[in-house]
């Protein structure tokens, strides 16, 4: 009984920890499928987390907060798209800049608005919405159906993403754009439009993932509270072979390592907690080594699109 209860807590924590990773990872999957790699997910997430927290702090409205997080990260997404797609800047450098800006701006504004005046305090968060009947299934019920709405949203997002990618005309074009953009352009489809769309979509989801951290998982903003989750999401995309379903499974794996280290810390094992904390990162490391070599990486990923002949 005690074991079952522990397992249930672990699984619940896994889903909670996986959600921001999955949100950011699915968005990045689309972006990379279209040929744009963004290592700046961390930056988006911090901006999203801060925008959401601030909005709840002043308005006490959670949905407005999500909207704010989306709007602000989409603005950054447009800027990123402009530099990488229109100006054809190096995508890795632009992503690194985004990380630095995200960390800097969110930290700076946080100090100005909250830290100095000690006004910062816990805000309202998304609460669990147990789904009647379903939540009473042993083990799975509390795990899957006693979560907040953002966790639920990933249940819809993941299959929807897979359907769009593999079963629609848009998905077909998206997959082709990351592999052979000139083929796409030669059929009269504008590669640039597809890439803008994918990049902005990725920004939006990463923004929501960030918001989740500050107003669902925690109840406040902390400087650099993403703690590398953006990079883990990036690793998930490669580990999940650019397939939304696998990316989601990879997200659950990484989520479980976060959950496990929390459980182990709470369980007061003899292992120093610092070692437990590195667990997710070690697993990321191992995952990248495993996925290396059998990669389905889009061929044109990271390469700015130049029209031929002009």
């Amino acid at each position: 009984m005690d074991f079952i209860f522990s397992l249930q807590l672990l699984l619940q924590a896994t889903l909670r920890m996986a959600t921001p990773l999955v949100l950011a990872g699915i968005g990045e999957t689309f972006s990379e499928r279209a040929g744009v790699i963004n290592i700046g997910l961390e930056g988006y997430m911090l901006i999203g987390a801060f925008a959401a927290y601030t909005t709840v702090f002043y308005t006490d409205n959670l949905f407005l907060a999500i909207l704010a997080a989306v709007l602000v990260t989409v603005l950054f997404g447009i800027a990123f798209a402009y530099f990488t797609i229109t100006v054809k800047a190096n995508q890795i450098i632009a992503g690194a800049v985004l990380n630095i800006i995200g960390l800097g701006i969110s930290g700076y504004l946080y100090r100005i608005l909250f830290a100095q005046t000690l006004k910062a305090s816990a805000v309202r968060t998304f609460q669990q919405i147990p789904i009647p009947l379903l939540k009473d299934i042993p083990l799975l019920g509390p795990t899957l159906f006693d979560q907040n709405i953002l966790v639920y949203s990933t249940y819809l997002l993941v299959p929807l993403a897979a359907i769009i990618l593999y079963k629609t005309s848009l998905g077909l074009v998206l997959r082709a754009t990351g592999e052979h953009p000139h083929a796409v352009e030669s059929l009269g489809i504008r590669v640039i439009h597809i890439r803008y769309g994918a990049v902005i979509f990725a920004a939006m989801l990463a923004g929501i993932g960030g918001a989740y951290l500050s107003i669902a998982y925690a109840n406040q903003f902390v400087e650099n509270m993403t703690a590398g989750r953006g990079f883990i999401a990036l690793a998930m995309v490669a580990f999940g072979q650019w397939n939304p379903i696998y990316v989601w499974l990879a997200g659950l794996l990484f989520g479980s390592t976060f959950g496990l280290q929390l459980r182990l810390q709470a369980g007061q094992t003899a292992i120093p907690y610092q070692f437990l904390q590195i667990l997710p990162y070690v697993v990321t490391f191992i995952a990248l080594i495993i996925s290396h070599g059998r990669s389905m990486q889009p061929k044109a990923m990271g390469i700015p699109f130049e029209k031929e002949g002009n």
Binding site: S169, L170, V173, R175, A176, L187
Partner: peptide, 29 residues
């Protein structure tokens, strides 16, 4: 036009390459 360098996506099927862009982006396949 059949270009000298093929405008085909190697990771997609023949049919997918052929119908690409022929249907509205929002349509299901």
């Amino acid at each position: 036009m059949v270009h000298q360098h093929f405008m085909l996506v190697p990771t997609l099927s023949v049919a997918e390459n052929i119908i690409m862009g022929m249907k509205p982006l929002a349509s299901f396949l």
